[in-house]
Simulated assay, not measured.
Amino acid sequence: MGEAVEREFFEVLEPASQRIPFVFNSPHSGRSYPQAFLDQSRLDAHSIRRSEDHFVDELFQNATFLGAPLLRAHFPRAFLDVNREPYELDPRMFEGPLPPHANISSMRVAGGLGTVPRLVAENMEIYRGRFPVEEALTRIEAIYKPYHATLRKLIARTHVEFGMSVLIDCHSMPGNVQLPGSGHRPDFIIGDRYGTSAAAELSRTAVSLLEQLGYVVARNKPYAGGFITEHYGRPTRGLHALQIEINRSLYVDEMTLVKKPGFATLTADLTTFIAALAQHVEEYGAYLPLAAE
């Protein structure tokens, strides 16, 4: 059952042997849209893809050659968002009552971006109307929970083997995102939940390495990290979690969703970045838990 679920809904790309204490996760790059879901939607097959982290799994797939596993979703974010609490659900979307443990009042639910989202980018409604609550709960049981169980196992295995673990949660952001209070558009944003999900030294090093590659990099603003970063980052225990957001305009045409010529260059730069960050952790990893802020 477990392996069948993994093959259908997500997969782990494993290195020949794990050589670095890193786990990479791409939860929003899935692009396998169930036909029944498309039939429920008021959006066309192109518009519904606007909330994808387009090709992010491919940008980071060289992590496996460097010795780290990569967990990637096949299911799309518009169908189910695993970067949320398991039951952040909007009762207005469903026929039937939600379970009492559902979080119906979070800011993400209010914004239409719960575990089962109501909207894709630019406030476009996904569904034609309400649908049975059992369908949403089935998605959580059949996909969300196995996905997180797999991620937890990867992190735990890494922590046991190396004495520490660094989770890199891989995402993309729209090309028009601007830094608060300025007109600058960052190429990358490193999120560590304002120092609570990873050692500050690790975050600063990630920013510095990307800047050395010629990119404009910000930290925590406007994206500090989501549920995954917050939930799995415990730096004082040697469990570090960083969220990395990549400006989509660097590598994909956001209207046609076709890769730009710069895709290969960005992939190569990210491979260089991963190798350099892994080297830093190898040299200084024993001190990182003490550096959390």
Score class of each variant (00 low, 15 high):
M1A: 14
F9Q: 07
L13I: 06
S17W: 15
Q18D: 07
N25I: 11
H28S: 06
H28L: 03
R31N: 14
Q35A: 11
S41L: 08
L43A: 01
I48W: 02
S51E: 14
E52V: 10
H54R: 07
F55S: 07
L70H: 07
F75M: 04
F75A: 02
F79R: 01
R84M: 07
E85P: 00
M93W: 12
E95D: 14
H101I: 13
A102N: 05
R108G: 05
R108F: 13
G112P: 06
V116G: 07
P117T: 02
P117G: 03
V120Q: 03
E122P: 00
N123K: 11
I126M: 01
I140L: 07
Y147D: 06
T150N: 13
I155F: 04
F162C: 07
S165E: 12
V166S: 07
V166I: 11
L167S: 01
L167K: 02
D169G: 06
C170G: 09
S182Y: 01
H184A: 15
D192P: 11
T196F: 13
E201I: 04
S203K: 02
L210K: 01
Q212R: 15
Y215N: 02
V216L: 10
R219E: 08
Y223S: 03
A224D: 03
I228C: 06
T229W: 02
P235S: 03
P235W: 04
L239P: 05
L239N: 04
L242M: 05
N247V: 02
V252E: 10
T256R: 07
L270Q: 14
L270D: 14
A278N: 09
V281K: 06
